[in-house]
Amino acid sequence: MEDAQNIPFLKVIILVSIIFSLLAIAFYVLFLTFKKRIEREQEALRTAEINFERQISEASIKAEQQERVQIAMDLHDEIGALVTVLKINILNAQNRLNEPDRLFGLLADTSQVIEKTADTIRNISNRISPPTLVKMGIDATLDELVRTINATGKMTINYQSNLSGVRFRLEAELNIYRIIKETINNILKHSHSEKLDIEIKRSNENIKITFNYTGLGLNNAQVEHLLRQEKGNGLKSIQSRINNLRASIRYEVDKKGKAEILIKIPIDEIRN
């Protein structure tokens, strides 16, 4: 045994082996450092993602609250004012029962006020949930919306779809309607475009909604940047509804200014 212990070669092997194991330990320490850095980065990414989701959700709530405030103001300012006029007209009519000419004029005026009140109520109701959507579905509602916008002369919208007669869950239809309305609104406000093509194609797997126009557009990176800022509540509201439908949205714009927005909604998410 002593002879064997004196073999220098064996000592070298043991020494080198120890060095190898020390190198392995050093490698493990390096791995741990790298792992911790990656875990920190992943954690930061997760936090950023949570904050982003929260921002979108807050924007959606804020948009809904703003809508409610607007409806409350409309009810108060418009309906309230009209009802006050009606009340005054009725009081005046009571005092002028012996003056048929003036009474007739008051009644005609009252009739006009009632008509205006009905129009205002219809408009407010449309903003909350378009009655056509409930009765006729998304296709007819969008057709109506496009006709209304075309009538204003601000933009010419060409709308095509193969949705005719097809119905989806009402909640989903309302979400799709609001996404399209908000997108049109954004294009109207920012694109400086006079013409917009909207196409809706339904297949067995999904619904593809395409917006094509020439003007100022955004690409995915720009939208992503806007979504992470305080501004862009409209975009956040769209994104929130897109998330609700488990859909996807893609923004593209080329150098010539041809812009496209493509929305894909899985049919399983909206099926009745």
């Binding site: 082996s17 194991s21 392995a24």
Partner: peptide
Amino acid sequence: FIYNCFSVLNNLE
């Protein structure tokens, strides 16, 4: 890992 880094040369002899 460490054990085999240590024993890879040892195993020769």
